[in-house]
């Protein structure tokens, strides 16, 4: 079979991969901020919840989290009389974003805590509330610092989406596997899949760079 014939099914898979990456990166970013800010909170309850979430999802395997959400949760739900069956896309996006969110939370926490004490003192002297200090003074300075690490996490997230093929989501990895079973043309198919992941990663890196430039625009020429 000619390699061009693989292109269409692989492209369809790539679309699913893109979709999964976008959803889980966005949801993961939201979770990162929620848990990262939560960990810097003065309220001990919020702090413990954030820390527990981070440790659990950093300390367990993404594959097991995925299987747990997809296979174990419905069974647990059944025992309690609740329908907790998740569609594969939802289970996949949830597992990916919960995982990436836990790593991202540490990035957010670190960047917030790296904002200099002087800035917090200036905010206090001007009578900003702690909440406004966070949103208006600390975060705008911390976000540019987070961007390189966020870029890495987004790429990692893109590659991790391949795991969802194991819960029968027809992403790029799933399509490649399917074609290989059918044609036995492993070299061509997996080489194409490699290049497609690589291409997606390049686009994602470029997008993160643009985002980084946007959130750091006030720093132009500084340092």
């Amino acid at each position: 079979m000619d390699w061009t014939q693989y292109l269409n099914p692989l492209m369809q898979g790539a679309l699913v991969t893109i979709e999964l990456t976008i959803y889980s990166t966005i949801l993961g970013a939201i979770l990162s901020f929620a848990a990262g800010i939560g960990k810097t909170a003065r309220n001990p309850v919020i702090k413990v919840i954030a820390a527990t979430y981070i440790e659990i999802f950093r300390g367990t395997s993404l594959l097991v989290q995925l299987f747990w959400l997809y296979f174990a949760l419905p069974v647990a739900g059944q025992a309690m009389g609740i329908d907790l069956r998740l569609p594969p896309v939802v289970a996949g996006v949830l597992a990916l974003s919960l995982n990436i969110g836990a790593y991202g939370a540490e990035v957010v926490r670190g960047a917030i805590q790296a904002v200099s004490k002087d800035q917090y003192e200036a905010a206090k002297a001007l009578n900003f509330t702690p909440r406004k200090t966070l949103w208006r003074i600390a975060l705008p300075q911390a976000i540019p610092e987070m961007m390189p690490a966020f870029g890495n996490l987004a790429i990692q997230n893109l590659k991790d989406t391949a795991l969802v093929s194991l819960i029968s989501l027809s992403d790029l990895a799933f399509r490649a596997e399917q074609l290989r079973n059918f044609t036995q043309d492993s070299t061509t198919i997996y080489t194409m899949a490699l290049f497609m992941y690589f291409g997606l990663a390049l686009v994602l890196t470029a997008m993160m760079k643009l985002l980084e430039r946007y959130v750091s625009r006030w720093r132009v020429g500084a340092r």
Partner: peptide, 29 residues
């Protein structure tokens, strides 16, 4: 509210323009 402070290291907000450094607290606080 009764006091204002000028710091040795200025402690301006680096992500805000000069004007916004001055208007931010009056507006927000």
């Amino acid at each position: 509210e009764k006091m204002g402070m000028v710091f040795q290291q200025f402690n301006l907000f680096p992500h805000m323009t000069v004007r916004r450094n001055i208007t931010e607290a009056p507006i927000q606080v």
